[in-house]
C-alpha cells in the first residue's frame, strides 16, 4: 500500500513536471533560403552556396549598436565583424545544412573567407552569403540537401522565386524541391488528435517542416 502510494505521488509529480515543461521554444528567427549547388567540370559536387535573408525583427536586432556612416544603412565592411560572428557560431549548429550523397551523409568544411552580410535598407533585412565546401567532392546519382534547425529556434524556408540553382551541373541532372508544408487546418486537426507524447509515424512533421532539395543525376 505504501509502495503504491509512493508510486502514485512520484508519478503524479513527474507527470505534472513533464506536462508543464515539455514544450518547445517557438522560432525566434525566420530565414528565407536561396541556395546554389556548385559542380566541378568533372560532374562532382563541390559545395553549397547559401544566401540567407533574415526577418526584419532579427535583422534590426542584429544590427543594433553597429556604427554606420549613414543612419539606417550598413555597408558590407561595417557588417564584416557581425558576419564573422554569425559564420563562426553557425559552426556549432552544423550550418543547419545536412546533405546525403547516394544515401550517405556527407561532411562540410568551414566556409572559406569571402562570406559577407548585406543590408537592405528598404526592408531592413540582412542577407548572409557564404559557401560550404564539401570535405571531399562527390559524384552523386542521388543527392539530397536539407536546411533546418532541429531545435526549431530558427525557421528556415526556401524563397518563393528561384530558391535553388544548380551551377555547372551535368545537363541530365534533375532538381526537385520540397517545401515545408504549411501548418494547414487539416494538419492542425490531425495533430490535435494525437496525445502530446505520441508521434504518428505517418505524420512526419519534422520532415515536412524541413526544406529538402533532391538532385538526381542518373
Amino acid at each position: 500500500m505504501i509502495h503504491r502510494f509512493f508510486f502514485c505521488a512520484a508519478a503524479a509529480f513527474a507527470g505534472l513536471v513533464i506536462a508543464t515543461a515539455a514544450a518547445q521554444a517557438h522560432p525566434h528567427i525566420w530565414v528565407t533560403v536561396k541556395s546554389e549547388l556548385v559542380y566541378a567540370p568533372d560532374g562532382t559536387v563541390t559545395g553549397v552556396r547559401h544566401a540567407w535573408t533574415f526577418d526584419d525583427m532579427f535583422s534590426v536586432f542584429a544590427t543594433q549598436g553597429i556604427e554606420s556612416k549613414k543612419k539606417g544603412e550598413f555597408t558590407r565592411e561595417e557588417l564584416a565583424p557581425l558576419a564573422e560572428v554569425n559564420v563562426t557560431s553557425l559552426k556549432e549548429y552544423d550550418f543547419f545544412t545536412y546533405a546525403k550523397a547516394n544515401g550517405k551523409k556527407i561532411e562540410f568544411d568551414e566556409p572559406p573567407a569571402g562570406y559577407y552580410l548585406d543590408f537592405n535598407p528598404k526592408d531592413t533585412v540582412l542577407t548572409l552569403y557564404f559557401t560550404l565546401p564539401l570535405k571531399t567532392p562527390v559524384k552523386a546519382k542521388d543527392l539530397t540537401l536539407e536546411v533546418y534547425d532541429r531545435e526549431f529556434f530558427v525557421d528556415f524556408s526556401f524563397a518563393e522565386k528561384d530558391p535553388v540553382k544548380l551551377v555547372g551541373a551535368p545537363a541530365h541532372c534533375k532538381l526537385s524541391i520540397g517545401r515545408p508544408q504549411e501548418m494547414s487546418a487539416a494538419l492542425t486537426q490531425q495533430l490535435s488528435q494525437l496525445a502530446a507524447d505520441q508521434r504518428d509515424p505517418s505524420l512526419t512533421i519534422g520532415a515536412e517542416y524541413a526544406n529538402k532539395i533532391a538532385v538526381k543525376c542518373p
Partner: peptide
C-alpha cells in the same frame, strides 16, 4: 540525426499559435 518534430497535440497547436503571434509584432 532526425529533425526534431514540433510536439504534436495541444502543444503543437500552442507552438503554432505563438509563432503566429510573434510574427505579427514587427
Amino acid at each position: 540525426q532526425a529533425p526534431a518534430p514540433p510536439v504534436g497535440g495541444v502543444l503543437g497547436w500552442i507552438f503554432t499559435k505563438q509563432a503566429e503571434f510573434y510574427r505579427q509584432f514587427s
